[in-house]
């Protein structure tokens, strides 16, 4: 088991004909992911070819899903059109939409989230690296790679990873793999202030997943997402957890790269988040080099 996606999940890519989308569609095909359809309005009928794979392209998500059985979308659509692309996936009744796009206006995301209310689709992201459920082959080949993460750093196993940052996720995954600890699923929830899925949503799924035996959560300054997750963890989480918060040295009032990474009005500080996590029994990684070791300490407790 894993969460959200597994090696049999059939995915489609919105924006497969753009250079970024095409590159990562190729890498997912190389990884062995069941990438079964592409969507680019106006290019329906064309075929995306790579390494012997022939992926049909459709004009709409609805048609792509109906004809190929895809249930999950990966979105590489430019910011001005990404909100529409997410809602197209929602309209087609997909299980999951994973939006990689960085730079979507906050007002657009506000409306998208409100419009998704009551729908069956879960959104991951935007501004995220995506999801990887590693496979069992060499360098974790054969898994489900949705998004832009490097596949080979993973290893199939029992640790769940959830993070707001792409490169910090890779850092944590690489530390785990280097120590022989594989991952059940790695979820990048993204660095924007309004997103589809937060730390707590993912931690609840890991808590219920029989394969997952330990969890690493990686947060950063801004918002109160991590504090809310920690409060739930304290009362309900049955699995050992480690955590890291980036941005302890960030000056207040400045946006640190990610749109959501800002301390404003004294809220969203790294210190407050670390304190809440410690209070919840989450082993804090003192430095980003200590993430996997912190989890190992938590699992030995």
């Amino acid at each position: 088991m894993s969460i959200l996606v597994n090696e049999n999940t059939r995915i489609l890519v919105q924006g497969i004909t753009g250079s970024f989308g095409a590159r990562h569609a190729q890498l997912s095909l190389d990884y062995g992911t069941k990438l079964v359809a592409g969507v680019t309005p106006g290019k329906g009928g064309q075929v995306f070819e790579h390494g012997g794979h022939k992926v049909p392209i459709f004009d709409t998500v609805e048609e792509a899903a109906r004809q190929t059985g895809a249930t999950v979308s990966c979105i590489f659509v430019p910011p001005a059109f990404a909100g529409d692309a997410i809602l197209e996936g929602v309209g087609a009744g997909l299980d999951l939409a994973v939006c990689i796009t960085e730079g979507i206006p906050v007002m657009d995301m506000m409306r998208v989230r409100a419009a998704m209310e009551g729908s069956r689709t879960r959104l991951i992201g935007p501004n995220c690296p995506g999801i990887v459920t590693p496979g069992t082959g060499k360098d974790s080949h054969g898994g489900c790679r949705i998004g832009i993460a490097p596949g080979y750093i993973h290893k199939r196993g029992s640790i769940g990873v959830v993070s707001r940052s792409g490169t910090l996720t890779y850092e944590a995954v690489w530390q785990l793999t280097s120590r022989g600890l594989g991952q059940s699923t790695c979820v990048g929830i993204g660095g924007d202030p309004i997103n589809g899925t937060n730390h707590l949503d993912v931690i609840k799924m890991f808590n219920e997943d029989p394969e997952t035996e330990g969890i690493i959560m990686i947060g950063e300054i801004g918002g109160t997402n991590e504090e809310q997750a920690a409060e739930w963890v304290k009362a309900h989480c049955r699995k050992p957890m480690a955590g890291f918060i980036a941005g302890a040295t960030a000056p207040p009032g400045r946006r640190m790269g990610h749109a959501g990474a800002i301390v404003s009005g004294g809220k969203g500080t790294a210190a407050a988040k670390q304190a809440a996590m410690e209070e919840a029994g989450i082993e804090i990684a003192a430095t980003p080099s200590d993430m996997a070791d912190a989890l190992i300490r938590a699992m030995k407790r």
């Binding site: 993070s163 940052s165 950063e220 990610h258």
Partner: peptide, 8 residues
């Protein structure tokens, strides 16, 4: 490379 890693 990367905002989270840069903060860290």
């Amino acid at each position: 490379n990367g905002a989270g890693l840069a903060m860290a």
